[in-house]
Design a protein around this nucleic acid. Structure first.
Length: 321
DNA sequence: TGGATTTGACCCCA
DNA sequence: TGGGGTCAAATCCA
């Protein structure tokens, strides 16, 4: 019984990844063509017009994201429960079919405490004087941590339920410098959130309200985050890629030369395995040689920021060093 | 009154 | 087995 779900999940993953790779390679080729096109002073005679190429590139990225999303979702289903097929479907009524080994206690009411801890695929840790990052977070827990002076607060994205966003973060004051917060981001935002006004974020400071008895106004007006925040470590991400993306992001005005430069940057977004790659059988290369995680191949959030949103609030506070 | 926070209970996993 | 992560009822607050 369980093998059926596992097999189904595995086949879904590999086909999704295959599709993602194909789309990425396709997009990359289109980008290269666009690059050469833009470098030609004479214009588009004969070759594909630039507009068409741009559309094609965007389409490739969109397809890739959807492929990776479906891949990731199937992984989540596998982790959640073989019988339950959806986000946030805890262990309510559907679990009753699961006649065999129900971990749910007999006396458990309303499914409290019934969940599957997710296998974290991506975490980023930053140290910052503020907890603001432009996203709307909702506190869902606080724990005293062993050998730690300050409790750890748990936040999830406000849009967890309405948009299924799985991003969470953990905020903990640093012992040696209580003015600083160690913030661990887990997962990527999949929500399309309208960025909140900065003062709104500052005013609704969940950590402060839950832990600090009195507010310190100086804390609400910190130095610019980009100056003070920095990443401690990044478990599974390539910080280099983030840096390069940030550079790409900064140039919002896209003149031809800018665009070509950015496309050069785009080259470096691909892993070395795909750099010299010319569309013969990308999946074989990827599936055999690279980490299994789609995030390690191309960060979903990164993709989302690259021209789909136009805004990247989640990372605005982060400066990668 | 609805959304956010608090808090105790529960589960996962090292 | 216990620390840590998550859930959801109770409570708070605008």
């Amino acid at each position: 019984m369980e093998t059926f779900w596992l097999e189904r999940s595995l086949s879904t993953n590999s086909s999704s990844k295959r599709r993602a790779i194909e789309e990425l390679v396709d997009g990359r080729e289109s980008a290269m063509r666009l690059k050469t096109l833009l470098r030609k002073p004479s214009g588009n005679n004969g070759s594909q017009p630039a507009d068409e190429l741009v559309v094609k590139i965007l389409r490739s990225f969109t397809e890739c994201i959807s492929a990776l999303s479906s891949c990731e979702e199937s992984e989540v289903r596998e982790v959640m429960s073989p019988q339950i097929g959806g986000f946030g479907a805890g262990c309510d009524d559907q679990g009753s079919e699961h006649s065999g080994e129900s971990r749910k206690r007999p006396g458990l009411k309303d499914g409290r405490g019934c969940y599957k801890r997710r296998k974290e695929s991506e975490t980023r840790t930053t140290i910052s004087p503020t907890k603001d990052d432009g996203h709307a977070w909702r506190k869902y827990g606080q724990k005293d941590i062993l050998n730690s002076k300050y409790p750890r607060c748990y936040f999830r994205c406000t849009h967890k339920h309405d948009q299924g966003c799985r991003a969470t973060k953990q905020v903990q004051k640093m012992e040696d410098d209580p003015k600083m917060y160690q913030i661990t981001y887990i997962g990527n935002h999949t929500c399309r959130e309208i960025t909140r006004a900065p003062q709104m974020i500052t005013d609704s400071d969940p950590w402060e309200s839950s832990y600090t008895p009195s507010r310190n106004n100086s804390d609400t007006k910190p130095l610019t985050n980009s100056q003070q925040s920095f990443v401690l470590c990044s478990a599974n991400n390539s910080i280099k890629k983030e840096e390069e993306l940030a550079l790409v992001k900064e140039d919002t005005t896209t003149t031809s030369s800018d665009l070509t430069d950015n496309l050069s940057s785009f080259d470096s977004l691909l892993p070395p395995e795909l750099m010299g790659f010319e569309s013969s059988d990308p999946t074989a290369m990827y599936l055999s040689g690279v980490d299994d995680s789609p995030q390690s191949f191309l960060d979903m959030d990164t993709m989302g920021r690259f021209g789909f949103d136009g805004e990247f609030p989640f990372y605005e506070n982060l400066q990668f060093s």
